[in-house]
Every structure is written in structure tokens, then in C-alpha cells.
């Protein structure tokens, strides 16, 4: 029988699908340690395609913003227009490429 409430840790898996793309979250798994987690991530999440690399991260190590944080963290769309190139008017004759 199972020994009470001891369970394997939960890990989040991030996969880099191709060269020069970022790691994308693909799911989670359970494993007792990091090597086991890495191997399981390979076996479960890298069976198709030809990924470049895998990250596994203990789920409890992830610090996430909450929905309550969102309004003060993130500007509404395009609020700071001065951060975008179209904000600036450059004479046509002045080539910038």
C-alpha cells in the first residue's frame, strides 16, 4: 500500500522546439528528483518532433503574478505609444534601413 501522504514532487516542463526559439511550457510530471524529472520529460514530452532542449523546474519554485497584480503590472494595449517606432515621424527622404 502507499505510505501515507508522501508523493513525488511536481515538475513543470519547458521545451525548446527549434533552434533559436524560446522554451515553452508543455505540461507537468511527477518525479522524485531532477535527473528522474529530466528523463521523464524527455520520454513524455519529446516523443515527437526534434526538440533542442528541455527544462524541468520544480513547480513550487515558480513565482507567478496573480490576477490581482495584473492591472498595476501591465499597461493596457499600446498605452505608452512613445515606446513604438510609429510614434516618431521621420521625413521620407531620410532612409533608416
Amino acid at each position: 500500500m502507499t505510505s501515507g501522504k508522501v508523493v513525488d514532487s511536481l515538475w513543470e516542463v519547458f521545451l525548446q522546439e527549434k533552434n533559436n526559439s524560446g522554451h515553452v511550457h508543455v505540461g507537468s510530471l511527477r518525479a522524485s528528483g531532477s535527473e528522474e524529472a529530466l528523463q521523464a520529460a524527455r520520454d513524455v514530452y519529446a516523443r515527437r518532433g526534434s526538440p533542442i532542449s528541455i527544462w524541468v523546474v520544480l513547480s513550487e519554485s515558480i513565482v507567478a503574478s496573480t490576477p490581482a497584480d495584473a492591472p498595476s503590472f501591465f499597461d493596457p494595449k499600446d498605452a505608452k505609444s512613445f515606446r513604438y517606432p510609429n510614434y516618431y515621424k521621420v521625413p521620407r527622404t531620410l532612409k533608416d534601413a
Binding site: T2, S3, V6, D8, A31, S32, G33, E36
Partner: peptide, 12 residues
Amino acid sequence: GAWVREAARAYE
């Protein structure tokens, strides 16, 4: 399979 999972945790 419980003993397998216990062993892995004990090893870690």
C-alpha cells in the same frame, strides 16, 4: 509499483 516510487524518493 509503490515500492519503486518509495525507493526513488529514499534515494533522492
